[in-house]
Design a binder for these strands. Structure first.
Lengths: 341, 341
DNA sequence: TCAGGTTGTGACAGCGATGTCAATCTCAAA
DNA sequence: TTTGAGATTGACATCGCTGTCACAACCTGA
């Protein structure tokens, strides 16, 4: 390990001066600075993070605690977004995936404390209320994709209501008047919020919201698991005499099953039926034939924004600390929705 | 921050004794130990990681460098597996996602150095040769899902050949004699290895390998991107007069498109056609109707094994440091393949 | 009773960095 | 020439922890 002292000896200056160069302290003669910088490069000196952290009693590392987010195809982009945000601040990230286990979570909070992380981004797989169960953490905490039931922390969540609105609005603009909905499990907050979005768009377009045309595509079992029943839901909708010309889906998996149901009934997408996904999981949306028009969950942006808020909380960046940011869900148009008549 | 000294003062012992208790040093009187432990708990003392690390000049943190692995639905499980392995060693993980950018990668190597990580797991999205371009890193490095062209590092990779064998073998055991293959891009190592597996299984089953029945489902563009052409490939195969009774896919996305092609031609799965996926991406395999039989890429195991090897390299665990571990790809049977005859 | 362990505990130094404060040097105005 | 302000630089202590070593208290067996 090359240390400050080594560099200082080599350069014939005091360690403190090297430290100044490393930290861009302006109070260094330009000549000295250049000479020292050169030696630093030549010797491959890298400042020891531990020593620095100890001296300054705070770390440049941020903790990312996730329930299952780092592990599901849905929402890994939160991780990427968080990292992108941190990179701009020359920071890095300790990641802790709890798999939803309380005990592990406790352990990792301790670990974050031991590492004196500069803050924590707490991300969840689903948009849901989060109960942190750690009241005594001294550093900033920002919730990503979840929100504090007790409003004790700032949160960054997708604008599900807007997303629902966007889905419906797009179909209405294409001329659809009978729109079916195969939604997520009714217990999810996203379902409620998007429902509100649908209604707003429907009202604006002069459509009536018909509850008979909304069917859950996922059903939550008593044990907490979920069953995907979108295929049957879709068959039900599509066999109606007044079958919808378009279906809004709660996510892209539901859309996949709608494609399957349409194929079963000999309906062609988008000629006989338009399908609108949610999430924009590219593995699905770009693999389906025709490719699926969807509304994206802005996970990357959510992660990035969470980092922003965090540095505001810590007072490192200017800007207000808002209690909640809603990140818009953009429409991604592909080939599964067609213009009517 | 509660420090050792605080605890020591409170307990009326020396800091060193508290340190001993924290580190389970047996040379502490049982009474003293109990008393101190109690005070530690009461004061919520958490040992400062930075100080410890500085004193002991090595960290309990391992670096995980990925190209895009943390961000793709394919392979996030490497992250989980790595974490699971580390957790058993009471270690944690700094994560660095390079998005394939050399410059970022350099930055993160520096960062790992600064953090004095105990080792690095270098994971890639595809099973491929990796060129680390960092010859002077002092700590152990293990490659996950990739391998060193210069054999300079140990690696943990999926057993693609075995996976291919498993795919073919299962279909042959079900009585299929004409088996089509829609493979990944021919430039991938996985494609070559699995091809070998197919041939072995075919030979064992007394089948002839017919090159006309193997078509790429992905095509690599000159710009490096990939086009998914499995749908057309499948149509080609399925329109042949001697159409195969089963198709082996290079991954589950290909399988999705095969389902679409089959639907187009009015073929029912599995009655008219059996389909065998690869990867076992549950978002796809469990959403398709019927659910897709697939061979899993053991990403979790790969991550976990990489950690194992790492601690062997570092001499923390007994066991040989093998140059390469091939992790088997298990068969996951669902409903897309049927018994013939 | 005493030499020679064994056990339990503490004093002290030092890991590598930086904040504090003082020392030195330069230059221009008095 | 003197003086004060500003620019550069360095000496030193210190962050929280643990390795080393010394020391006291207590055994053990001859």
């Amino acid at each position: 390990m090359v240390t400050l002292k080594d560099v200082a000896r080599e350069a014939g200056v005091s360690p403190k001066t090297v430290s100044r160069v490393v930290n861009d302290d302006p109070a260094v003669n330009i000549e000295t600075r250049k000479a020292v910088a050169e030696i630093i490069a030549r010797m491959h000196y890298v400042p020891d993070h531990a020593a620095r952290m100890m001296r300054m009693s705070h770390s440049s590392v941020v903790g990312l605690m996730t329930d299952a987010v780092a592990t599901t195809p849905y929402s890994v982009d939160i991780v990427r977004g968080t990292q992108a945000g941190l990179r701009e601040q020359s920071r890095t990230m300790l990641i802790a995936n709890t798999d939803g286990d309380r005990q592990q979570e406790q352990e990792y909070w301790r670990m974050f404390r031991a590492h004196k992380v500069a803050g924590v981004v707490y991300a969840t797989m689903y948009h849901r209320p989060a109960d942190l169960g750690i009241p005594d953490f001294e550093r900033g905490i920002v919730l990503a994709n979840c929100y504090s039931a007790r409003r004790s922390h700032s949160s960054v969540v997708p604008d599900d209501e807007g997303g629902g609105y966007t889905q419906a609005r797009h179909l209405i603009e294409l001329g659809h008047r009978r729109i079916g909905i195969v939604s997520l499990s009714p217990v999810l907050r996203a379902t409620v919020l998007r429902g509100a979005g649908y209604r707003t768009a429907f009202a604006e377009g002069g459509l009536l919201y018909d509850p008979a045309l909304e069917i859950p595509g996922f059903i939550t079992r008593p044990d907490g698991g979920e069953d995907l029943v979108a295929y049957d839901a879709a068959l039900g909708l599509l066999r109606r005499p007044d079958r919808p010309t378009a279906i809004i889906c709660g996510n892209d998996q539901i859309a996949m099953q709608i494609y399957a149901a349409a194929a079963t009934l000999g309906l062609s997408i988008p000629d006989d039926l338009s399908v609108m996904g949610f999430d924009d999981m590219t593995v699905i949306t770009r693999t389906l034939k025709p490719m699926l028009t969807s509304v994206a969950l802005p996970y990357f942006e959510i992660g990035r924004t969470a980092v922003d808020i965090l540095s505001r909380i810590n007072g490192e960046t200017e800007g207000p600390v808002v209690p909640q940011v809603q990140v818009p869900c953009p429409l991604v148009v592909r080939q599964s929705c067609r213009q009517l008549g």
